[in-house]
Amino acid sequence: MTDLAAKRDAYVIPHHPVRDLLTGSVASIALTFILVLAVGLIWVGPKFLSFGNISIMGSFLVVPLIVGAFAGFALLSGVVDLSIGSMVGFSSALFATFLTLGWDPWAAAPVTLLACLFFGGINAIAIVGFGAEAIAATLGMLVALRGITWVLLGPQGSIFSFNPGLFALVNQSVFGLPLFFLLAAVLTLLTSIMVSKSRLGRHIQAVGGDDRAAARAGISVNRVRVVALLLSAFGGGIGGIVFAGQLGSAARATGVGLEFQVYAALMIGGYSILRGGVGNPIGGALGLLAVAGVSNILDLRSISPYYVNIIVGLLLLAAVLLDRFRGGDAYE
């Protein structure tokens, strides 16, 4: 196999826009997404693409889309932040606590985001400052934040924080689709433009692709990674606030397992957990849509949701294998 790899490296294939379009990471996830749509249309029928069904899926996808768009920055810069799921839970619990104390939502939100940035800062200190293994360190933060969330929620395990104005805003519909779903789609587009066109986005990609080369090019690797980790925590914070607005409450189960849902979808969408510098927010969003489509199809056919996990797991392995064929590091 090593000989094959060497041979492949020997022939450096020049970039070709049409071929890149067909073999790139966004292309393969777009094909997967179209396949999911086709299967849904054939198996479930036109109900699958009805406005009602898309609207339900859309409101479920708001938080994963927001969290995924920001977590993608950390992946691009070559670090993984597993604590995003707990960050969503923590943020929704803290936000709900402030609301029950009678705070205005517009005052509670910035304070909640600052608290999330504080814990994101601890991640950054451990990973960038001390050189900790990102997966293990953020796994610790995942559990610690969940503990803090549970302490905040108290013995009942949930906080009821219904705020009519906020609820109406978050659950508003435009053209038959949830407003926040459209906003999340716009956010995905904006982050995609930011990644490929802005200075910070290019620096993040460069650091993730090859941190030594980036350092030689004069980019401060540490600063870029700190910013990426803070952005990831910020995304978790926003996701939690939106979650609390959607549900009108915060509970122990909020955000549990979200990190696996998001990262599996992002990797299916072309990101890589192991190397930075690859992936695109649009691909990641399509990955989330594809996974949501699969679970929606199984749901409409009333098949056990555990099959979704099996399919997602297999897709994840396939995506990693594809990433390796596309030039990812082989593990020996």
């Binding site: 601890i122 991640n123 200190i125 451990a126 990973i127 400052g129 001390f130 050189g131 900790a132 293994e133 293990a136 360190a137 796994l139 610790g140 933060m141 995942l142 559990v143 610690a144 934040l145 969940r146 503990g147 803090i148 302490v151």
Partner: peptide
């Protein structure tokens, strides 16, 4: 909370 923070500290020391 304790277990999580201990892991973060342990991994930082390891790093």
């Amino acid at each position: 909370i304790f277990q999580g923070l201990i892991l973060v500290i342990a991994v930082a020391i390891d790093g």
